[in-house]
């Protein structure tokens, strides 16, 4: 991937800012998501809550299913591949996916290496729990970052933890003297030039979204106020009582995340939220996949 292609890929993520990216499993759901105001959809066979319930090995979705969703909507379509599974990524690039999510939600294919994303022309988004993980993924070629959260739980606590950690580590790095950056790069296990970028600009070099456990307009507003530039919603929409209404409410909450009165009216009568499982009840901790 040449520099201009990488730049164009980072710029697509900039266009998604202030928006909601929704998990969908069928063309019908994709249309509901688009009509509700999603700025992109994530095409996958099973949403994280069902992946969690089903157990076993979870893989890239059937390309035919992804193509069906590409035909159904005009907004960007993303899809997930397993961590380290560059052949799945090649297949997704071959069907001209708009963004690949190298995702801990699927079963990792490689327990050491992530995909060398610099070898691809399509953009990648990757999950991160802290600044070190975020910058390592960017060094590998990711052009967008999201928190890992704990997908499929409807519990926001991990996404909050990851976003706070990344933001506080950025602030700490920005406050350092320049001669302390070499050691910071060593501690974070990341390239020096990325450390210098964060030090100078007080932000990641790519767009940073929240993901994992967002189930309500209030959850989305919380993540935006903590510094997220947009939100992924996985199981929270299509595992709820009234997906179209909840999706539309979350879209508006992301736009007006600083307006409590509007958030109050958006939160009214949304029907059943996804039941969810809390952090203490889960058996598979997905956030620990890929470091």
């Amino acid at each position: 991937m040449n520099n201009d292609r990488y730049q164009l890929n980072k710029e697509l993520a900039q266009m998604l800012k202030g928006g909601v990216i929704m998990d969908v499993t069928t063309p019908e759901q994709a249309v509901i998501a688009q009509q509700a105001g999603a700025c992109a959809v994530m095409a996958l066979e099973r949403i994280p809550a069902d992946i969690r319930a089903a157990g076993g090995v979870s893989r890239m979705s059937d390309p035919a299913m992804i193509k069906g969703i590409q035909k159904a909507v005009s907004i960007p379509v993303m899809a997930k591949c397993r961590i380290g599974h560059f052949a799945e990524a090649q297949i997704l690039q071959a069907i001209e996916i708009d963004y690949i999510d190298e995702s801990e939600v699927l079963t990792p294919a490689d327990d050491i290496y992530h995909i060398d994303k610099t070898r691809f022309n399509v953009p990648f988004v990757c999950g991160a729990r802290d600044l070190g993980e975020a910058l390592r993924r960017i060094a590998e070629g990711a052009s967008m970052i999201r928190t890992k959260g704990e997908p499929g739980t409807g519990d926001i606590v991990q996404a909050v933890r990851h976003m706070r950690k990344i933001q506080s580590e950025i602030a700490a790095l920005a406050a350092k003297r320049e001669d302390e950056l070499f050691e910071a790069a060593k501690q974070l296990q990341v390239p020096l030039d990325l450390v210098r970028y964060v030090h100078e600009n007080k932000k990641l070099p790519v767009v940073n979204f929240a993901a994992g456990g967002v189930a309500t307009p209030a959850d989305a507003a919380l993540m935006m106020q903590l510094g997220a530039e947009g939100v992924f919603v996985g199981s929270g929409i299509f595992k709820s009582g009234d997906p179209a209404k909840r999706a539309a409410a979350i879209v508006k909450a992301v736009t007006n995340y600083n307006d409590p009165e509007m958030l109050a009216s958006l939160s009214e009568n949304l029907g059943e939220a996804m039941v969810g499982i809390n952090e203490k009840e889960i058996e598979i901790i997905m956030e620990e996949r890929g470091k």
Binding site: M15, L16, Q34, G37, A248
Partner: peptide, 8 residues
């Protein structure tokens, strides 16, 4: 950005 989102 996304025109469908903004229009809505």
């Amino acid at each position: 950005g996304e025109s469908t989102t903004q229009r809505k």
